[in-house]
Design a protein around this nucleic acid. Structure first.
Length: 297
DNA sequence: CGTCTTTGACCCGCGC
DNA sequence: GCGCGGGTCAAAGACG
């Protein structure tokens, strides 16, 4: 690694500082590693296909734009909802962030409104509702959300964190249910939804909401700890240039996505080091991993 | 016994 | 106002 520029690139990201690290980036690594681990999983081949993705939005959604904690929406809730009525699971569009902010204040007003109305309800129900409302009093802004499309037989992909399933719902127009998971770590409010695409049952749609405020738990089944170390694309450093020499991929994006290479003592990590990003980009048979990303108000 | 999943009920927002 | 769909709660059961 004689390239100073590359050095700087690596120094921008320390995979062991997960409490500082936004989830967006880590999930990217995890999914990437998962894709490398399991040949049944998708690679990033079409991830970088420009047909449907704006890389500005992409980099923002992954919070790769340095220190921004705010994820700019690629798809807000309303536009997503409308799109999903016709083509659920496949909508990709963009919207203004201002509109999202505006929706915030409107909703908070509505909340107050609803709170007032609920006061008149009967005792038993109001008991429960009051507890719910009191929770909602603390105007908890919706966390940014983003989704992954992953080709996998497994519904719930290991991503390094521990999740507790708290719900499952049938999805309209789909024979496959949607599962709701919450991060088991205390004070961590990250949630994720997992559902299978009805259009392509081999594709799992995982939607993350929020950012982990803790380290990735070390007590992972199997190899996930290694995945979390994210050495996966260590050798991709040499591929970045090639990848970014493509039509649209900004090197900056890659530089933020690439982890530092300080996990060499992790055997599980080592196996990824021979996989370059370029290799993945040259696998045309693989389905695109990330196709849709969006935030909600 | 602690942790996790299952599942029916419930709440809420939205469109009609 | 009503019905629908998404999201959440929480009791009960399964599991290690």
């Amino acid at each position: 690694m004689s390239n100073d520029e590359g050095k700087n690139v690596y120094q921008q990201y320390d995979p062991f500082q997960y409490n500082q690290l936004d989830m967006n980036r880590s999930i990217f690594h995890q999914q990437a590693a998962a894709a490398a681990l399991d040949p049944g999983l998708m690679s990033f081949t079409n991830f970088f296909d420009t047909s449907s993705l704006d890389y500005n939005s992409l980099s923002k959604a992954f919070d790769v734009s340095c220190c921004s904690s705010q994820v700019i929406s690629a798809v807000d809730d309303m536009s997503k909802k409308k799109a999903s009525t016709t083509t659920p699971n496949s909508s990709v569009s963009s919207s203004s962030n201002e509109a999202v902010v505006e929706e915030d204040s409107v909703k908070s007003n509505k909340l107050e409104d609803i709170k007032g109305r609920c006061e008149n309800k009967d005792e038993e129900k109001s008991k429960k509702q009051n507890s719910n409302l009191s929770k909602k009093k603390e105007k908890r802004p919706r966390e940014p959300r983003f989704a992954f499309l992953t080709k996998s037989e497994i519904d719930h992909l290991e991503d390094g964190y521990r999740w507790r399933k708290y719900g499952q719902k049938a999805v309209k127009n789909s024979p496959y249910p949607r599962s709701y998971y919450r991060c088991t770590s205390q004070k961590c409010v990250v949630k994720k939804r997992v559902e299978r695409s009805y259009q392509d049952p081999s594709v799992v749609i995982t939607t993350y909401e929020g950012q982990h405020n803790h380290h990735c738990p070390a007590t992972l089944r199997g190899h996930s700890a290694g995945i979390m170390s994210s050495p996966f694309y260590a050798s991709a450093s040499t591929s970045v240039t090639a990848a970014s020499s493509g039509p649209t991929l900004p090197q900056e994006l890659f530089s933020h996505l690439l982890p530092t290479n300080n996990c060499q003592n992790d055997p599980a990590s080592m196996m990824y080091q021979n996989l370059s990003l370029q290799q993945h980009l040259q696998m045309p048979d693989h389905y695109g991993l990330l196709q849709d990303l969006f935030t909600q108000k």
